[in-house]
Computed example of a mutant assay.
Amino acid sequence: MTLPLIPPMLATPGTLPPAAQDGRWAYETKQDGQRVVAYLAGDGGVVLRARSGEDITAAYPELQSLGAALAGTPAVLDGEVLALDQQGRADFQLLQGRMGLAHSPARAARRAGQTPVHLVLFDALSLGGRSLVPLTYTQRRGRLEELALNGPFWSTPAALVGHGEQALAATREHGLEGLVCKRLDSVYEPGTRSRSWIKIRNLRTADVVVGGWLPGRGRLDGLPGAVLVGRLAAGVLRYAGSVGTGWSDAERVELARLLRAAASDVCPFTPAPRQAGARWVLPRLVGEVAFSTRTRAGLLRQPVWHRLRGDLTPEDSAADLTDGPPETGGGV
């Protein structure tokens, strides 16, 4: 049968619901993967579509057997494709090696043998030819759980009703990306970023050394569009990524003045990052940034500038990013 195309509902960044309303919300782990809507026509076939609507079915051949799990029952299911590390946590770096292969089935099949993916299902949008979009989250979730879809490459993790503070604390304790809060009485809003779903990302902070900058464009002409930052390790400044957000206009102007005063012809990073048009500075400015996770290569993911740390020297910040193992952290 022909299934309706349903763009996925999106969550709005925010904070935990008020304690008095805690019991009106469900809490799900925020997954770091690729958002997909799975279309199962009931004949054993599967079509996977990305958030953009692109057909990415061929990129994940191991998920084709999901169709057999619901043979005879047409369904549209919402979920997230993950690649798991050895600890069973979502690792976006691993997943990147699988994404973008929808037009290369042979490569996708080889990668599937090396790095299999796992589809986490968290909503049912249509079942047996009937749209579930007008139903409440509680009703849709009940229909999804009745399907008992737990197989070799897919699962339906439980959602916790109430106890939001404990749920968020658990994600932090286990190094997970965050939490998604979903109002129990909310309907599914296709293609909408809704306040009925709230995402909370666990951000970390770090002190980093500024080693360069990239000129801004347009209204930022003459000002830094981003700064290039690093961390000291054994006396060597290692590149940790670029930071391009978090300043007010006044703070950006002040930062430009400090960068010009520290201008240098020599790249302070070892090895030098590949950044076209980069301008180098003496590595003496220290800044505090917030970020979601670190890659295994030590790069910050989703960094945001917080403030200059005039009270710190580069040496003071040396241990900040080296404490603890790197984590990986991404789609609702």
Results as ranks from 00 to 15, higher is better:
Leu223Ala: 04
Arg231Trp: 14
Ala158Ser: 14
Arg193Cys: 04
Trp154Lys: 04
Ala68Gly: 08
Leu223Tyr: 12
Gln31Ile: 04
Thr136Lys: 03
Arg110Ala: 14
Thr295Phe: 12
Gly44Tyr: 04
Ser186Gln: 14
Gly191Pro: 11
Val229Lys: 06
Phe153Arg: 12
Arg49Leu: 07
Asp32Asn: 08
Arg231Glu: 13
Pro271Phe: 02
Gly164Pro: 00
Arg309Met: 04
Ala159Gln: 14
Pro273Leu: 03
Gly216Phe: 14
Pro8Trp: 12
Arg204Gly: 01
Ala319Tyr: 02
Ala233Lys: 13
Asp85Leu: 10
Thr322Pro: 00
Ser248Ile: 08
Val332Lys: 04
Gln93Gly: 15
Ala106Gly: 04
Leu63Gly: 00
Asn202Trp: 07
Leu259Ile: 04
Val36Asn: 05
Met99Tyr: 03
Val243Ile: 14
Asn150Tyr: 08
Leu40Pro: 01
Thr205Ser: 13
Gly72Lys: 12
Gln21Glu: 15
Val253Phe: 08
Arg294Tyr: 11
Gly218Asn: 11
Gly330Cys: 06
Asp265Cys: 03
Val36Gly: 03
Pro325Ser: 09
Gly162Tyr: 05
Gly44Ser: 03
Asp78Asn: 10
Thr138Asn: 06
Ala319Asn: 09
Ala83Leu: 08
Ile200Cys: 01
Gly287Pro: 00
Thr2Glu: 13
Ala59Ser: 13
Val229Glu: 08
Thr156Phe: 05
Ala106Tyr: 08
Leu135Ser: 12
Thr270Asn: 03
Thr270Phe: 03
Tyr60Gly: 01
Leu282Asp: 11
Asp221Cys: 02
Arg183Trp: 13
Asp123Thr: 02
Gln86Met: 06
Gly310Val: 00
Ser194Lys: 06
Val161Phe: 13
Gln21Asn: 07
Tyr239Ala: 05
Pro224Asn: 02
Ile56His: 03
Ala170Tyr: 14
Gln166Leu: 14
Thr313Asn: 01
